[in-house]
Each structure stands twice: as structure tokens, then as C-alpha cells.
Design a binder for these strands. Structure first.
Lengths: 140, 140
DNA sequence: GTGATTGCAAATCTTTTGCACTAAA
DNA sequence: TTTAGTGCAAAAGATTTGCAATCAC
């Protein structure tokens, strides 16, 4: 091992930040590791901030908000609108949809190929389709 | 005309309120007329309040919020989630979907029969599908 | 009358902002 | 250095809530 080696996981996340043009600061690196290294998940700013605190990572809530939006703008995350009170961010940026459990506010992914839309109206003149969001709302 | 006659439009709205178990107060009656008599539309509490003011109807914003939620609970309106910052209410309570113009924040209805979902996953065990919401997000 | 409804102002909650401080490059 | 990024506390915006006054029945 040469003295310039960097631990593997860091490098991966680091490159994704660099690739997005985001300076890899301590906070961004820590949040990116929490979000991008494990399995796909859904977080709110509040939850991510609490997790960071629990992991003894010093980040302010304002920075968590900023970071979530920067990551979203960079395509590393996707924002999901299912609740008009709170924003959710999804680490799964591929084409897919959601189950939303009203009551527990839990979000589950539905793989894109499990929903087949056979027909859909064309967008109004002058408008371009940015995304089609399908939310199956559930009661438990 | 007997002396107990009530102007026609009022009666209709009045009955819907009574049917919903809501005491027809001056405020509820005025808001119900604004919402339920014309063509279908989408409102936020803020917008409805401003319209009421413009029409010289004295209603507080708090009452507008309460009323929108009561109407929704009664099935007279439906709440649409397209923006995590603000709640929209739709006077069209039939099965249908939406176009959402990001940027101008405009909502347009898509009749239910214009979207055909050919296949969809079953709800997780123990959960019941309450509604399937499809939002086609547009950029202008 | 009396219980539901309203209005107001204050409280709450999520999110954004201004600005002095800190840290990447 | 120099400039981007951060933290804090304050501000902002949407919505809810407590409670006395008011209204429908």
C-alpha cells in the first residue's frame, strides 16, 4: 500500500461528489456515505440530521437541507412528493414508483417494471414531461 | 312564491352541507358556493381566502383551513399532493389524475379514462389501497 | 339557552436565509 | 490566499391551536 492510498469506500463516494462538481467537505462526505453506500432508502432532512447526530457527525440541520438539495440537483438523489408537510428524498434515482403508508408515513419503492401504463394523454402544447409519478396510497 | 322559499343555488349547497352533517354557517355557505357551484377547480387556502376577501366575505384564514379540511373529510373536496410546500384542494372528487406545471404551480385535471394502467403490484399484505395518484410533472 | 363555530393571535413545524467563521484547493 | 461551504440564529411561510366571543338551532 502506497502512502497515498485512500480507504476504498471513501474513494467511491468522493468521486461521485467530485463528479457532481461538489467540493468533498467533511459534512458532504459523511452524508453521502450515509445515503449512498447502503441499500436504497428514503429520508427526510430531520431524520438524516438525527442519524448524523447519533453517529457523532457534527452537521447543522441547515447544512443537511442544503446538502439534500445539492445532491438532488446533482442527480444523486430524487425528491419524492407524497406528503404536503414534509419533503422526502430517495436514494433510488432510477425509474420507479411508490407505495405510501398513510398513518405511518412509510414509503416503499415499486420497481418501474411493476407498473405498466398502457395509455396516457399527451402533454399540453408547449409543455414537456419531466416525470410521471405514481403513488399508491395505502391505509393499514 | 311562498315566504319560506330560498333562492335556488343556496338550497343546493345548503343541502350538501346538511348532508355532510356540517352546520350551514355563513362562512361555510359562502365558501361552499365559491367552490361547489362553478366549474371544477383547484385552490389553496391562501387563494380561497383572498377570493373571499375580494368578494367582501368576511372569513378568517384559520376558518378557511378548517373548512377545507372539513369539506375534504366530508367528501366534498379532495386533497391533492403535488407540492411539498402547500396543500391543494380539488373540487373534482371523481377518479382522475393531474398535470402539474412546475414553475407556475398550475394543476390541470386529466380525466380518469385518459390514463390506463395495465398492471400494478398488489398492495403489501395487510394494507388496503386507498387511492392511486398519478401526477405528470411538466416543465414549460 | 347551549353547544357548535368562528376569529384572532400566538404557537408550531418545516424550510430558507444572512452573515461571520472555517476549511478546501 | 481565495472562495466555497458551514453553523447559528433569525426569518419566513404554511398550518394548527387555545380560547373568548358569536351564531345556529
Amino acid at each position: 500500500m502506497s502512502k497515498t492510498d485512500t480507504p476504498r469506500p471513501y474513494k467511491q463516494v468522493l468521486d461521485r461528489l467530485r463528479g457532481a462538481g461538489l467540493r468533498p467537505t467533511r459534512q458532504r462526505l459523511a452524508l453521502a456515505k450515509m445515503l449512498l453506500e447502503g441499500p436504497d432508502r428514503h429520508v427526510t432532512a430531520e431524520i438524516l440530521h438525527a442519524e448524523a447526530q447519533a453517529a457523532s457527525i457534527r452537521v447543522s440541520l441547515a447544512t443537511v437541507y442544503n446538502t439534500l438539495h445539492q445532491f438532488t440537483a446533482a442527480g444523486l438523489l430524487r425528491e419524492i412528493v407524497v406528503d404536503s408537510q414534509r419533503s422526502y428524498f430517495d436514494t433510488n434515482t432510477s425509474d420507479h414508483h411508490h407505495f405510501f403508508f398513510e398513518g405511518s408515513n412509510r414509503l416503499d419503492d415499486i420497481p418501474g417494471d411493476q407498473v405498466v401504463v398502457a395509455s396516457m394523454p399527451p402533454p399540453p402544447a408547449g409543455a414537456k414531461v419531466k416525470r410521471v409519478d405514481i403513488v399508491i396510497r395505502l391505509e393499514e
